[in-house]
Design a protein around this nucleic acid. Structure first.
Length: 563
RNA sequence: UGACCUAUGGUGUAAUUGGCAACACGUCUGACUCUGGAUCAGAAGAGUCCAGGUUCGAACCCUGGUAGGUCAACCA
């Protein structure tokens, strides 16, 4: 019973990261500051897994009155692109987070990082190595076998400094030399075996252009950037756990501000893939229609699908943060969007798979305006009128010539309520003699069953949605389903490609009809098509052409009972 | 045959630091309903990876196993 408690007093779910932070706060560490960062590499679009990280980083900062920076980790010019920078900014912003002008790029710090490298050389902790990539890999050893030391390991400080400066000056070809940290080739941690700090790349950088021909590796950039920005808690995913000793080593040797790296388990979800590499592959090979295809787990895809920022933030909250590997059931994501859209989406009527229904005792040419409630969950959303006429379309599925048990809908001789309208009775139907398809359903209506009239409270088992055949708008309906058929698409036998698990029916395009109130629907407007599901207007909608994407279906106990 | 990490209902996350395993999703009932939606009421489902130990008492501590994950890119 905390109905009267202000939001801030409501207990928020604890996680191990917040426990660590609260401990730090108690100890007055970092002057009790909390400063996080979200550090994407601009080499792809953000996905729902990033959303988890974004919500964690920005959410944590907000919770402890701290700050969160947006920092692009752009240390590899051959993979990165401004297109991605722009999409990342849009997505983080759309999710509802603001970095208050603290938008940084690792490349902003290249001068400083270069200086750090020289500092390490001068301390005798780094050296220029002339080994080839293959040789370095070879001499690195394996997790169970120690590596061997590079023959260049003991060059003098002067020689190293000279060589490194000449690397910077572009005197050596790509791949001919690297700068390595001098740590321990026998370390059980592979990352401590004289890791590469700088490599030569003559690519064009999206921000620094051709200024540099040497670029720092992740390990010699990330922690340094964190330190420069005085990040207190550097949150990252589990695979960086083994990098932490190196992260700490650089910070210690450089004698610079020491952020604390904390690792958490990345998000996995059923029926989808989450690696940028695979998502890029799906886009590049046209298995989907771009990064923002509504079937993609990208933030832009979810947006186009009709997801709201609130639902994604809530999802991130609900799934929690821990260190064990996890696979979240997509049904939880679907629950989050249904819950949100149930409260906010306007109800409308749309018929996806139409069959004509004629009310034989209703006058021709008459249009009756039926008042309809826009959102029963939100009375202030008001009402609208829906035109009712003699000829309607109803859902083909809502009629059965020979009704199955517990089928509460229309069948010969049966009565049903037309939502916001009359109770009708099925008198007859017309069937195509060749195809066997039902082409027309003939009904009679009872005028006294309209709201407010004498028989309006009569109970019938089923209520159907409908549109007026003469007034409805044609619309393209895109029904999206899960992208993959198997729960774990990547779980394939040796030699089998995960793409064989792609769901061939993940997109079905229909021509349907919607009520005329939708004539002015704008892209991303969200609706509930009564009894069917939540839909949102697609970007492809333009004057005279309506396109709706199905976000998620309504829970459907009839379909479930049928099977 | 190394290092590091992890192990709690079908799924995910808790358990105020040693005190009767809780919440959410999902599943199943029933009520209500002009959405087979929503809402409401209820149920089933784990004895916490295994084996020992400490303790009046262990999901939490100790010992030893087992299983899974990560690490050998001039990627991040």
């Amino acid at each position: 019973m905390n109905d009267n408690k202000p939001e801030s007093e409501v207990k928020t779910p604890a996680n191990f990261i917040h426990s660590i932070i609260e401990e730090d706060l108690r100890n007055g560490k970092n002057e009790s500051r909390v400063h996080t960062r979200f550090p994407p590499e601009p080499n792809g679009y953000l996905h729902i897994g990033h959303a988890k990280s974004i919500c964690l980083n920005f959410g944590t900062a907000a919770k402890y009155n701290g700050k969160c920076n947006l920092r692009f980790d752009d240390t590899n010019p051959v993979k990165e692109d401004v297109e991605y920078v722009d999409s990342i900014r849009d997505d983080v912003h759309w999710l509802g987070f603001d970095w208050g002008g603290r938008e940084f790029f690792a490349s902003d710090y290249f001068d400083q990082i270069y200086q750090f490298a020289e500092d390490l050389i001068k301390k005798g902790k780094a050296y220029v190595c002339d080994l080839t990539a293959d040789q370095i890999a070879e001499q690195k050893g394996t997790p169970t076998r120690p590596g061997i030391e590079s023959p260049y390991r003991n060059r003098t400080v002067e020689e190293n400094l000279d060589l490194f400066r000449r690397m910077k000056a572009g005197e050596f070809p790509e791949g001919s030399k690297v700068l390595r940290a001098k740590i321990d080739m026998a370390s059980p941690n592979m990352h401590m075996r004289d890791p590469i700090m700088y490599r030569i790349i003559f690519g064009h950088h999206h921000r620094t252009g051709d200024k540099w021909c040497i670029y720092p590796m992740y390990d010699f950039a990330h922690g340094q950037c964190d330190s420069i920005e005085k990040i207190t808690h550097s949150l990252c995913t589990l695979e960086f756990e083994v990098h932490r000793p190196l992260y700490d080593w650089f910070v210690k040797e450089l004698e610079i501000f020491a952020p604390q790296q904390i690792e958490f388990a990345r998000l996995n979800m059923t029926y989808t893939v989450m690696s940028k590499r695979k998502l890029l592959e799906l886009v590049k090979n046209n298995f989907v229609n771009g990064w923002d295809d509504p079937r993609m787990p990208t933030i832009s895809g979810l947006r186009r699908r009709g997801y709201t920022p609130e639902s994604i933030r809530n999802f991130s909250e609900i799934i929690g943060v821990a260190k064990r590997d996890n696979v979240i059931d997509v049904s939880l994501l679907e629950f989050c969007i249904r819950e949100d859209l149930n409260k906010r989406a306007s109800r409308v009527m749309g018929v996806l798979n139409p069959v004509k229904l004629i009310i034989t005792n209703f006058p021709e040419g008459v249009v009756e305006e039926m008042p309809a409630i826009n959102n029963p969950e939100k009375p202030e959303a008001g009402n609208r009128n829906v035109p009712f006429t003699r000829e309607l379309y109803i859902e083909r599925e809502d009629f059965m010539e020979e009704p199955a048990p517990k089928f509460f809908r229309l069948a010969p001789g049966k009565e049903v309520r037309l939502k916001y309208s009359y109770i009708i009775k099925c008198e007859d139907f017309v069937k195509d003699p060749v195809t066997g398809e039902i082409t027309e359903i003939h009904c009679t209506y009872d005028p006294e069953t309209l709201s407010g009239r004498s028989q309006s409270n009569r109970k019938v088992k089923g209520t159907l949605h409908w549109v007026s055949a003469s007034n409805a708008l044609e619309a393209e309906i895109r029904l999206y389903d899960r992208l993959f058929m198997s729960e774990d698409p990547e779980d394939v036998e040796e030699g089998i490609d995960y793409k064989t698990n792609l769901n061939p029916d993940s997109l079905k395009i229909l021509k349907g009809f919607v009520e005329p109130s939708l004539s002015n629907a704008q892209p991303l407007d969200k609706y509930q098509f009564e009894r069917i599901g939540y839909f949102c207007t697609d970007y492809d909608t333009k004057e005279g052409k309506l396109v709706f994407n199905r976000t998620v279906s309504l829970k459907d106990s009839w379909t479930k009972a049928k099977n």
